[in-house]
Design a protein around this nucleic acid. Sequence first.
DNA 1: TATTGTTATACTCTATAACTATA
DNA 2: TATAGTTATAGAGTATAACAATA
Lengths: 162, 162
Amino acid sequence: MADALEPEQLETYFALMEAVSLLQHAVEQQLRAEGDLSYVQFQLLARLAGAPERRLTMTELADGVVYSRSGLTHQAGLLEKAGLVTRGPSPEDQRSTLVTITEDGVARVDKVLPGHVRVARGLLFDPLSDRDLHALGDIMARVRDHMRAQPPRSAASRRRAT
Amino acid sequence: MADALEPEQLETYFALMEAVSLLQHAVEQQLRAEGDLSYVQFQLLARLAGAPERRLTMTELADGVVYSRSGLTHQAGLLEKAGLVTRGPSPEDQRSTLVTITEDGVARVDKVLPGHVRVARGLLFDPLSDRDLHALGDIMARVRDHMRAQPPRSAASRRRAT
DNA sequence: TATTGTTATACTCTATAACTATA
DNA sequence: TATAGTTATAGAGTATAACAATA
């Protein structure tokens, strides 16, 4: 339990943060240029496209993507205005809103996906061996699951009322 | 050269993006709560605190942290207004602005650092073995260097005039 | 009473373009 | 002419708090 991170931890932390920052920036440029989408919007559409009946409730949709309910309402409103999703009441729970991706929405995802993949491959995967890829995937999945399980911080803030 | 990423690449990519998103969010919460700083502002102060004479030119300071010149001017203005840095002309090149961190600025970094380290350790390093840490550090350093060297996208946009 | 979602509002961050001044 | 930095401005994203409706 030292006060500071050890030098190797520090280097790793900074390398991770800078690399992902560069990756995020490149991905957002590509999505904006080729599909007029932010990364958050892309994530929302991609989730919907992969959902059982191409629809999810707002709460399900928010999970892991957005950190405030109003933020999701705002983004869903933008996607709806663009004709990429529709919103309607849920028959099961009248409080819920069902968000459904439209054909245009699916088409938009399909349109940006190749470029997205190209950027991810060119920046992230090109310099990695199969062995590296496997190690990185294993490590980050473990880290992600650990982070999801952490109660203290915002990850679970959806639950907070006040 | 397939069109899509292979499944393992896709999982790795999403795990990386989600984990870092959670980490970024947690770090920004901590920096804001304990030091009223954004992550970008923290990075700028940390760089200045580590610089030879605790000062850098705007261009040096921007490198790798910010993607537009005006963005840095804005952030430097905020830091100056908060008394954490001072700005003055460079004696060597009259076009340059030298940004110097103040004692208050150094104190602010010192104030938030323990909490920052606590968050990084709790979220990122706790679930990793020494072996994992070493592998992650090696991989991300390689990825970062590869990304820095990529010309096409925004990483080098500082150079662009028009 | 707790949960789902929206609204209104305010704030921060970022980026583009036009501009000044120096090399 | 090219570079360093600022300004003005506009747009996007995000979050808080107050609110309405349903469970």
